[in-house]
Protein backbone atom coordinates (compact mmCIF):
# COMPACT_ATOMS: atom_id res chain seq x y z
CA UNK A 1 0.00 0.00 0.00
CA UNK A 2 1.33 3.46 -0.73
CA UNK A 3 2.01 5.86 2.09
CA UNK A 4 -1.09 7.93 1.47
CA UNK A 5 -3.56 5.08 1.56
CA UNK A 6 -1.78 3.49 4.46
CA UNK A 7 -2.01 6.64 6.55
CA UNK A 8 -5.60 7.35 5.54
CA UNK A 9 -6.65 3.85 6.43
CA UNK A 10 -5.11 4.00 9.88
CA UNK A 11 -6.61 7.39 10.56
CA UNK A 12 -10.08 6.54 9.35
CA UNK A 13 -10.23 3.75 11.94
CA UNK A 14 -10.10 6.38 14.64
CA UNK A 15 -12.38 8.92 12.94
CA UNK A 16 -15.88 7.72 13.41
CA UNK A 17 -18.13 10.75 13.18
CA UNK A 18 -20.72 10.74 10.43
CA UNK A 19 -20.77 13.65 8.02
CA UNK A 20 -23.92 15.00 9.64
CA UNK A 21 -22.45 14.79 13.10
CA UNK A 22 -19.30 16.47 11.92
CA UNK A 23 -21.14 19.37 10.33
CA UNK A 24 -23.30 19.85 13.42
CA UNK A 25 -20.27 19.69 15.68
CA UNK A 26 -18.39 22.25 13.62
CA UNK A 27 -21.43 24.49 13.50
CA UNK A 28 -21.57 24.39 17.26
CA UNK A 29 -17.88 25.26 17.51
CA UNK A 30 -18.42 28.19 15.16
CA UNK A 31 -21.21 29.47 17.38
CA UNK A 32 -18.88 29.35 20.34
CA UNK A 33 -16.18 31.14 18.39
CA UNK A 34 -18.56 33.89 17.38
CA UNK A 35 -19.66 34.25 20.97
CA UNK A 36 -16.02 34.64 21.99
CA UNK A 37 -15.21 37.21 19.33
CA UNK A 38 -17.10 39.82 21.35
CA UNK A 39 -16.54 42.42 18.65
CA UNK A 40 -18.18 45.38 20.40
CA UNK A 41 -14.95 47.26 20.59
CA UNK A 42 -16.52 50.61 19.79
CA UNK A 43 -13.44 52.72 19.26
CA UNK A 44 -11.41 50.69 16.83
CA UNK A 45 -8.94 53.32 15.68
CA UNK A 46 -7.51 54.21 19.09
CA UNK A 47 -7.20 50.51 19.98
CA UNK A 48 -5.62 49.71 16.63
CA UNK A 49 -3.14 52.50 17.12
CA UNK A 50 -2.31 51.52 20.69
CA UNK A 51 -1.78 47.88 19.79
CA UNK A 52 0.36 48.67 16.74
CA UNK A 53 2.58 50.89 18.85
CA UNK A 54 2.84 48.17 21.48
CA UNK A 55 3.96 45.79 18.73
CA UNK A 56 6.74 48.14 17.75
CA UNK A 57 5.06 49.63 14.68
CA UNK A 58 4.84 53.35 13.90
CA UNK A 59 1.45 54.88 13.19
CA UNK A 60 0.35 57.91 11.21
CA UNK A 61 -3.10 59.11 10.24
CA UNK A 62 -4.55 61.30 7.52
CA UNK A 63 -8.01 62.30 6.38
CA UNK A 64 -8.27 61.23 2.78
CA UNK A 65 -6.48 60.69 -0.52
CA UNK A 66 -5.56 64.33 -0.84
CA UNK A 67 -3.40 64.10 2.28
CA UNK A 68 -1.63 60.86 1.52
CA UNK A 69 1.31 62.35 -0.33
CA UNK A 70 1.97 64.80 2.43
CA UNK A 71 1.65 62.13 5.11
CA UNK A 72 4.05 59.85 3.29
CA UNK A 73 6.50 62.71 2.87
CA UNK A 74 6.64 63.12 6.58
CA UNK A 75 7.23 59.41 7.09
CA UNK A 76 9.89 59.01 4.41
CA UNK A 77 13.40 60.35 4.38
CA UNK A 78 14.31 62.71 1.56
CA UNK A 79 16.62 60.35 -0.19
CA UNK A 80 14.83 57.12 0.55
CA UNK A 81 14.58 54.99 -2.55
CA UNK A 82 11.07 53.58 -2.69
CA UNK A 83 9.00 50.83 -4.30
CA UNK A 84 5.34 51.60 -4.86
CA UNK A 85 2.51 49.12 -5.28
CA UNK A 86 0.88 49.28 -8.69
CA UNK A 87 -2.37 50.70 -7.47
CA UNK A 88 -4.60 53.21 -9.18
CA UNK A 89 -4.95 55.10 -5.94
CA UNK A 90 -1.34 56.23 -6.14
CA UNK A 91 -2.23 58.03 -9.35
CA UNK A 92 -5.01 59.94 -7.61
CA UNK A 93 -4.01 63.29 -6.26
CA UNK A 94 -0.69 62.90 -8.02
CA UNK A 95 0.69 60.89 -5.11
CA UNK A 96 3.17 58.85 -7.12
CA UNK A 97 4.46 61.85 -9.03
CA UNK A 98 4.89 63.96 -5.92
CA UNK A 99 6.82 61.24 -4.15
CA UNK A 100 9.04 60.51 -7.11
CA UNK A 101 10.02 64.14 -7.55
CA UNK A 102 12.41 63.93 -4.68
CA UNK A 103 13.51 60.33 -4.71
CA UNK A 104 14.24 57.30 -6.76
CA UNK A 105 10.97 55.44 -7.21
CA UNK A 106 10.41 51.99 -8.60
CA UNK A 107 7.27 50.12 -9.31
CA UNK A 108 6.59 46.54 -8.52
CA UNK A 109 7.03 45.09 -11.92
CA UNK A 110 10.18 44.97 -13.91
CA UNK A 111 9.46 43.28 -17.19
CA UNK A 112 7.09 44.41 -19.90
CA UNK A 113 4.61 41.60 -19.36
CA UNK A 114 4.04 42.83 -15.87
CA UNK A 115 5.96 39.95 -14.38
CA UNK A 116 8.94 40.03 -12.12
CA UNK A 117 10.37 37.15 -14.11
CA UNK A 118 11.53 35.01 -11.22
CA UNK A 119 13.61 32.77 -13.43
CA UNK A 120 15.89 35.73 -13.78
CA UNK A 121 17.30 36.24 -10.32
CA UNK A 122 17.82 39.91 -11.07
CA UNK A 123 14.46 40.88 -9.67
CA UNK A 124 15.52 40.03 -6.21
CA UNK A 125 18.17 42.70 -6.33
CA UNK A 126 15.49 45.04 -7.59
CA UNK A 127 14.21 45.37 -4.05
CA UNK A 128 17.25 44.65 -2.04
CA UNK A 129 18.74 48.07 -2.52
CA UNK A 130 15.52 49.90 -1.78
CA UNK A 131 14.84 51.71 1.44
CA UNK A 132 11.07 51.55 1.63
CA UNK A 133 8.19 49.56 0.17
CA UNK A 134 4.74 51.18 0.17
CA UNK A 135 1.69 48.92 -0.04
CA UNK A 136 -2.05 48.98 0.49
CA UNK A 137 -3.39 46.70 3.19
CA UNK A 138 -6.79 45.12 2.63
CA UNK A 139 -7.67 45.31 6.27
CA UNK A 140 -6.51 45.86 9.80
CA UNK A 141 -7.12 43.96 13.02
CA UNK A 142 -7.46 46.36 15.92
CA UNK A 143 -7.19 43.99 18.85
CA UNK A 144 -4.05 42.35 17.49
CA UNK A 145 -2.49 45.48 16.06
CA UNK A 146 -1.87 44.02 12.61
CA UNK A 147 -2.63 44.70 8.96
CA UNK A 148 -3.51 42.20 6.26
CA UNK A 149 -1.63 42.39 2.97
CA UNK A 150 -1.74 39.96 0.10
CA UNK A 151 0.19 39.12 -3.02
CA UNK A 152 -1.63 40.40 -6.09
CA UNK A 153 -0.72 41.55 -9.58
CA UNK A 154 0.03 45.01 -8.25
CA UNK A 155 1.74 44.00 -5.03
CA UNK A 156 4.63 41.60 -4.65
CA UNK A 157 5.47 39.63 -1.54
CA UNK A 158 8.97 41.08 -1.53
CA UNK A 159 8.12 44.76 -1.31
CA UNK A 160 6.93 44.44 2.24
CA UNK A 161 9.83 42.17 3.12
CA UNK A 162 13.14 43.10 1.53
CA UNK A 163 13.41 46.89 2.09
CA UNK A 164 14.41 48.23 5.50
CA UNK A 165 11.13 50.10 5.88
CA UNK A 166 7.61 48.93 5.07
CA UNK A 167 4.74 51.38 4.96
CA UNK A 168 1.21 50.03 4.76
CA UNK A 169 -1.78 52.24 4.01
CA UNK A 170 -5.02 51.04 5.48
CA UNK A 171 -8.51 52.43 5.28
CA UNK A 172 -10.15 53.13 8.62
CA UNK A 173 -13.25 51.50 7.19
CA UNK A 174 -11.44 48.23 6.80
CA UNK A 175 -10.62 47.76 10.44
CA UNK A 176 -11.84 44.60 12.12
CA UNK A 177 -12.18 44.33 15.85
CA UNK A 178 -10.49 40.95 16.35
CA UNK A 179 -8.88 38.18 14.36
CA UNK A 180 -12.12 36.26 14.60
CA UNK A 181 -13.93 39.15 12.91
CA UNK A 182 -11.31 39.24 10.17
CA UNK A 183 -11.62 35.51 9.50
CA UNK A 184 -14.15 35.81 6.62
CA UNK A 185 -11.86 38.26 4.82
CA UNK A 186 -8.86 35.99 5.33
CA UNK A 187 -10.87 33.01 4.12
CA UNK A 188 -12.04 34.76 0.98
CA UNK A 189 -8.53 35.94 0.10
CA UNK A 190 -7.10 32.45 0.62
CA UNK A 191 -9.31 30.72 -1.93
CA UNK A 192 -7.57 28.69 -4.54
CA UNK A 193 -8.34 31.37 -7.11
CA UNK A 194 -7.38 34.05 -4.63
CA UNK A 195 -3.95 35.06 -3.46
CA UNK A 196 -1.06 32.64 -2.94
CA UNK A 197 0.17 34.65 0.02
CA UNK A 198 -1.94 36.49 2.56
CA UNK A 199 0.18 37.95 5.32
CA UNK A 200 -0.73 39.42 8.65
CA UNK A 201 1.91 41.92 9.64
CA UNK A 202 2.02 42.96 13.25
CA UNK A 203 5.25 44.87 13.56
CA UNK A 204 8.79 45.21 12.29
CA UNK A 205 10.89 42.09 11.82
CA UNK A 206 12.41 41.25 15.14
CA UNK A 207 14.26 38.71 17.20
CA UNK A 208 14.96 38.13 20.84
CA UNK A 209 17.15 35.09 20.34
CA UNK A 210 20.13 36.63 22.06
CA UNK A 211 19.44 36.74 25.78
CA UNK A 212 15.86 37.83 25.06
CA UNK A 213 17.10 41.30 24.06
CA UNK A 214 14.71 42.71 21.48
CA UNK A 215 16.37 43.71 18.21
CA UNK A 216 14.40 44.84 15.15
CA UNK A 217 15.26 44.30 11.51
CA UNK A 218 16.43 40.74 11.82
CA UNK A 219 15.53 39.58 8.32
CA UNK A 220 12.71 41.86 7.22
CA UNK A 221 12.05 45.59 7.63
CA UNK A 222 13.52 47.33 10.62
CA UNK A 223 10.70 49.87 10.51
CA UNK A 224 7.03 49.18 9.95
CA UNK A 225 4.69 52.14 9.60
CA UNK A 226 0.93 52.03 9.25
CA UNK A 227 -0.76 55.02 7.67
CA UNK A 228 -4.43 55.01 8.61
CA UNK A 229 -6.46 56.85 6.00
CA UNK A 230 -9.86 57.82 7.31
CA UNK A 231 -11.52 57.95 3.92
CA UNK A 232 -9.89 55.87 1.29
CA UNK A 233 -11.58 54.70 -1.88
CA UNK A 234 -11.82 50.96 -2.31
CA UNK A 235 -8.85 49.47 -4.04
CA UNK A 236 -8.61 47.60 -7.28
CA UNK A 237 -4.98 46.93 -7.83
CA UNK A 238 -4.08 47.01 -11.42
CA UNK A 239 -0.71 46.40 -12.90
CA UNK A 240 -1.43 48.64 -15.86
CA UNK A 241 -1.75 51.72 -13.68
CA UNK A 242 -0.32 54.72 -15.42
CA UNK A 243 2.31 55.36 -12.85
CA UNK A 244 4.26 58.42 -13.81
CA UNK A 245 7.20 56.57 -15.08
CA UNK A 246 9.71 55.69 -12.55
CA UNK A 247 13.17 57.02 -12.48
CA UNK A 248 15.28 53.91 -12.64
CA UNK A 249 18.52 54.26 -10.76
Amino acid sequence: MNARDDMMKKLSLGSRMSADQRIADLQHLHDRLRDLSGGDLAELIPLFRERLLANGAEVAECRDGSEIAEALESILGDDDRIVLADDARFADHDIARKLSEKRETRRVCLSDDGNLAPENGGWKQHYAGMDAGITFAVGGVAESGAVIVHASPGESRSMSLLPMHHIALVSAEHLHATLLDAAPLIASLSQRNGSSAVTLIGGPSKTADIEKVLVTGMHGPKRFTVLIVHQLPAGQQDSSTPLSHHTEG
Binding site: G114, P118, E143, A151, S190, T199, G220
Partner: peptide, 26 residues
Amino acid sequence: ATGQRITCYTSLITGPKRSTEPDGPE
Protein backbone atom coordinates in the same frame (compact mmCIF):
# COMPACT_ATOMS: atom_id res chain seq x y z
CA ALA B 1 4.60 31.24 23.10
CA THR B 2 6.26 34.61 23.34
CA GLY B 3 3.76 36.83 25.09
CA GLN B 4 2.85 38.57 21.84
CA ARG B 5 -0.66 39.53 20.78
CA ILE B 6 0.32 38.45 17.33
CA THR B 7 3.66 37.48 15.90
CA CYS B 8 5.16 39.93 13.41
CA TYR B 9 4.39 37.78 10.42
CA THR B 10 1.63 35.30 9.89
CA SER B 11 1.92 33.88 6.38
CA LEU B 12 -1.04 32.12 4.84
CA ILE B 13 0.19 30.31 1.79
CA THR B 14 -2.25 28.72 -0.65
CA GLY B 15 -0.52 27.05 -3.56
CA PRO B 16 2.52 28.40 -5.40
CA LYS B 17 2.74 31.86 -6.95
CA ARG B 18 -0.16 32.62 -9.30
CA SER B 19 0.82 33.45 -12.84
CA THR B 20 -0.36 37.03 -12.39
CA GLU B 21 1.53 37.60 -9.15
CA PRO B 22 4.88 39.33 -9.35
CA ASP B 23 6.91 36.99 -7.14
CA GLY B 24 6.87 33.82 -5.06
CA PRO B 25 7.95 30.22 -5.62
CA GLU B 26 6.95 28.37 -8.76
